[in-house]
Simulated scan of single mutants.
Amino acid sequence: MRALLDALAEPGACVTIDQLPGLLGKSYRDACTDLRRAYAAGLIERASEGCYRLTERGRSEDVEPLMVTTAPTGVGGAWDATARNRIWAAMRQLGRFCRADVAGAVAQPETDRKALESSIRRYISRLVAAGYLVPLTGRVRVAAHPNTGQKRYRLVRDTGPASPLVRRDGSIFDRNLGRVVTADVQAG
């Protein structure tokens, strides 16, 4: 994580997620893990879509970023206890991601990885249908799919910290907007 903070140390520096692996000499997944941990610890902030910079705390000389090992999991805030809230928070932090990125960001030691990945796949398909996410061209290679890779997505409708709820009828209720969102409503 120290390499991430050093990469952002220049005044006015803003680094995108796609630049991280090259700057840090790490895989895309490991670079995103460092980004998630630094974000959760309040060491970096999102300057614009997909672009991150240091916070005042991140610039502090007495910060020990290597001590940060997991994101906070307390009730309330961006990292609530439910899987869907953690998935939504990870999508908001990453901006652009594949399913493996989100799974890596939200998995906990006791998590059933197969069930989590299935949940992420279903949630992503609903969010794409409602216009929250758009698929990007190309695929990223991940260990789970080394030959075909996984689709990448971009969050285009970030309405707030509360995760959109998928109802039994397939519609999505956005708790941040206080209404049902349909596919014909454009991101704004």
Rank of each mutant, 00 (worst) to 15 (best):
G104L: 05
K26M: 12
A71R: 09
A89I: 02
E10M: 04
D112S: 11
R29V: 13
R29N: 11
A187C: 08
G149C: 00
T82C: 06
G50L: 07
P11A: 00
V15F: 00
A81E: 08
T137Y: 08
D112M: 06
R57D: 08
L4F: 02
E61F: 02
A129I: 00
V180F: 03
P161S: 08
R29T: 12
T137I: 06
Y52A: 01
M1F: 01
W88V: 00
D101Y: 01
R37N: 15
L4W: 01
Y39F: 15
D158L: 01
A183N: 07
G131I: 02
T82E: 13
R53T: 15
V63I: 04
Y28L: 13
S163R: 11
V185C: 07
T69W: 05
F97Y: 09
A103Q: 10
D34M: 03
I87K: 03
A38R: 00
T182C: 02
G131D: 01
E110A: 15
C14D: 14
D80G: 07
E117Q: 15
R36T: 14
R86K: 13
G58H: 00
L23G: 07
V185P: 01
P146N: 05
R154M: 13
A90Q: 05
L116F: 03
L133H: 02
A89H: 08
T159G: 03
P11F: 07
A9Q: 15
R141A: 12
S48K: 09
Y52P: 01
L136I: 05
G12H: 07
T16L: 05
R121G: 10
S171R: 15
W79C: 00
L23F: 03
R168Q: 14
T82K: 13
E45K: 05
H145W: 09
T55K: 03
T73D: 13
Y153C: 03
D34S: 02
I17R: 15
T69R: 09
G12T: 13
Y123S: 04
I87V: 10
Y39S: 09
V63M: 00
V142R: 04
R92N: 05
L5G: 05
G188E: 14
T148Q: 14
P109R: 00
A144I: 10
V15P: 06
T82V: 03
D34W: 02
G95L: 05
V106T: 07
R126I: 07
D34F: 00
A9N: 15
W88G: 03
D174L: 01
A107S: 10
E10I: 04
G95S: 14
R92C: 02
A78F: 11
Y39E: 11
A162W: 12
D30Q: 12
S48F: 08
G42L: 06
D34G: 04
L127F: 03
I17V: 15
A89T: 11
A162N: 09
R121E: 12
I120K: 00
F97M: 10
S119I: 03
R57E: 09
I17L: 14
K26E: 15
I172E: 04
N85V: 01
Y28Q: 13
V68H: 04
C51E: 14
R29F: 08
A3P: 10
G95P: 06
V156W: 07
Q150Y: 04
Q108F: 02
V15E: 06
G178A: 05
V63S: 01
A143M: 10
E117T: 13
Q19I: 07
P135K: 07
P109S: 07
R29E: 14
A38S: 14
T148G: 09
G131H: 00
N85D: 12
I172R: 11
